[in-house]
Design a protein around this nucleic acid. Sequence first.
DNA 1: TTCAATTTTTAAATGAATCTAAAATTATTA
DNA 2: TAATAATTTTAGATTCATTTAAAAATTGAA
Lengths: 218, 218
Amino acid sequence: MLSLSEENYLKAIYHLSEQGKTNVSTNLLAEHMGTKAASASDMLKKLSQKELIDYGRYQGANVSESGKKMALQIIRKHRLWEVFLVEKLKFNWNEVHEVAEQLEHIKSPLLIKRLDEFLNFPKKDPHGSPIPDEHGEIKEKPQFPLAEKPPGFEGLVVAVKDPGNHFLEYLDKIGIYLGAKLKIVDRITFDGSSEVIIDNKKTLFLSKEAGANILLSE
Amino acid sequence: MLSLSEENYLKAIYHLSEQGKTNVSTNLLAEHMGTKAASASDMLKKLSQKELIDYGRYQGANVSESGKKMALQIIRKHRLWEVFLVEKLKFNWNEVHEVAEQLEHIKSPLLIKRLDEFLNFPKKDPHGSPIPDEHGEIKEKPQFPLAEKPPGFEGLVVAVKDPGNHFLEYLDKIGIYLGAKLKIVDRITFDGSSEVIIDNKKTLFLSKEAGANILLSE
DNA sequence: TTCAATTTTTAAATGAATCTAAAATTATTA
DNA sequence: TAATAATTTTAGATTCATTTAAAAATTGAA
């Protein structure tokens, strides 16, 4: 059984790996966790001993098969709770993260099984991220950052890459939501920003950064 | 902000006080918590420093006003989660305790406010115990242990005093549930057991111990 | 390709929460 | 009421997650 800290570090390593990073570094991990390199280094040793990560001194870490499975179970719980908070308790999609960070550590397989049933087996969390099944499997359609698609491309807003940093409040404010139909009208060479139309109605200009953080699928 | 341990010890002191015990002793507390007297003694000092209990060396502890308020908030959360588990997630009333022990420590006032709304402001948990309101107020009708009422008394089963030790499974097995109508037919002098009739139908014999653990109201 | 900068690890401390063992206090009973 | 028993506290260790500071390893740049 993993401790709270072990679960959080393991999840962080998994998320950082998913973001392309291979061999997650001690410093990056520490930064992500809001701790110091020494703490991260200790934890890497511990997780390595439990064979949840592949790690060698000075070489960075990658989740092992069993570590990945464990991380995905925590993520599954996190995302199911987020669905619960939004759909049943009327939380806004930008209010759920911290509470779900706590709820994801509750230990009870029956609870998660029943919660999943109660929510009618959702496949996506409120930010559009896929919910792994009880075996850690994720199935989803290919998704592309808006910024990588050319003018003329039309698709649905299916997720945001990183929901942090008040990005969701910003989307709320400008009227972008999950499931919105979005057409790319133009790409501004000057700054990489995009002109888009939402639901065939409203024209918006999105910065390069915003475009990189909004995921579309056809 | 209290730590997990502090919350659990405080709750235990409150519960023991409620059970008549005044000046909760170090040993009793340790036993209740599954720890050793030395640990309980340390914690008493800490809670006393935070003025959540009144405590003097060798004199036992009682919750202070602010400690009581805090304990009741934890109990409120525990019981609301129990209602959720039974009413929404179809848990049996004997399966909820351990999960609620974890859920009660989630820190989010908004979560509890919304959960309370979602459950339609329940007044009792699945074992019939009253749910304190957001100010820590408890309102309920007087309740009596079955064993203290004489033959002839009729009332409703409204709660169990201590849901531990497989008592709930036992009640399920013999057909006693919350809200059942119960009439005391006879008291057996020999062993203090009671002959009762449930819902004007089924006759049962309950041990002295069972009778002390079942609470009735008129 | 060597040496300086950066990153990572190790070592030594700290604060919780726990334990065992011993000392102090209170309670009991002969 | 004085000795013994029981309870409670203190003292000293242990484990976990963290820190700071110093040492070791890696990287990269002149």
